[in-house]
Amino acid sequence: MNRRAKIAVLGAALLLTTGATAAAVDDEPREAATAAGGKLRHTASAATADGGTREAAALTGTAKLYRSAGDDITFSFDAHLSAKHKDDPMKATGTFEWSHYLDGEGARAKAKVDCLVTGGKVAVVSGVVTDTDLPGAKGTRVGITVHDLGRRDRLGYSWATTEGLGPKDLPKCVGSAPFEKVRKGTGNFTVVPWHPAL
């Protein structure tokens, strides 16, 4: 191999190594400890626009589900896990709500978040129903799974195979596979991936 070819091969190898290293760093949580007044300060894996520490996980957005019969089904999420609680997904806060109507009949419900776990573009959130016009549903824990695929988001829910919203003893952060598709042009769910200290 001549000298010019060797330089080209080494340059390509260096670029590949640099790219792989950068990708690995972006995928893993970056923690740096610095001494400040005798205390250690940790920085999270990403920073907010104002220079603050980003939240540990989040699920936000609204979308309508697709149904061939024309059902009007809407899900909205505002669920967050703060940086200071990054090792405890059951400290998540926020709400999520949904409604399902067809030919003027249906119901709506709102739940208070009690757990949020995310991985990559998938989130599982659970909460207890606090406000609803569905008889017998208040106080029931439900879980929802979201797959953030841009305009092709998907969603699944814990009551997919049960009657009503039950069971009342559903564990926290349990949902179903995201089998539902969002209606074209409505998907704007956003998942912030969780990077727990493992």
Score class of each variant (00 low, 15 high):
R152I: 03
K91I: 02
A79L: 08
D87M: 10
A79C: 14
P89Y: 13
T132E: 02
R108Y: 13
G119R: 14
K84H: 10
A111E: 07
V129M: 04
G156T: 14
V122F: 02
K121C: 00
G143S: 08
L165D: 06
V146E: 03
G127Y: 03
T74Y: 03
R154T: 15
Y101D: 15
D153I: 10
G106A: 13
R108F: 12
S82V: 13
V128A: 06
L81G: 12
A92E: 07
I144W: 03
G127A: 09
K112V: 06
S76K: 09
A79P: 04
E105I: 13
R151M: 02
K121M: 04
G106H: 14
V124G: 01
G136C: 02
T93M: 08
L165Q: 11
A79G: 09
D148I: 00
D78I: 04
A83Y: 13
K91G: 00
V142G: 03
S76R: 11
D88R: 10
G139M: 09
L116V: 04
R154G: 12
A79V: 11
K138Y: 00
T130D: 12
D133F: 00
P89M: 05
T95V: 12
D88Y: 05
A137I: 00
V117T: 12
A160V: 13
L81E: 13
Y157M: 06
E97M: 08
L149T: 09
D131V: 03
G139H: 08
V129R: 14
T140W: 10
G143K: 11
A123M: 06
D78P: 07
F77W: 08
K86N: 12
G150T: 05
E97V: 03
F75L: 12
V146Q: 04
W98M: 09
T140H: 11
V146T: 03
T161Q: 09
P171D: 15
T74C: 01
T132N: 02
T118M: 03
K138M: 01
I144K: 01
V146Y: 02
G104C: 10
S99R: 14
S76V: 14
L165C: 07
V146W: 00
T145M: 01
V124E: 05
S82L: 15
A83S: 15
G106F: 02
V129I: 15
A92V: 08
E97G: 12
R141G: 07
D87W: 03
E105T: 15
S76P: 00
T130R: 11
G136Y: 00
G104F: 11
S76C: 03
D153A: 14
R154Y: 02
D87Q: 14
F75E: 15
F75D: 15
A107P: 00
K121E: 06
I144C: 00
P171K: 13
D131P: 01
G143D: 07
S82P: 09
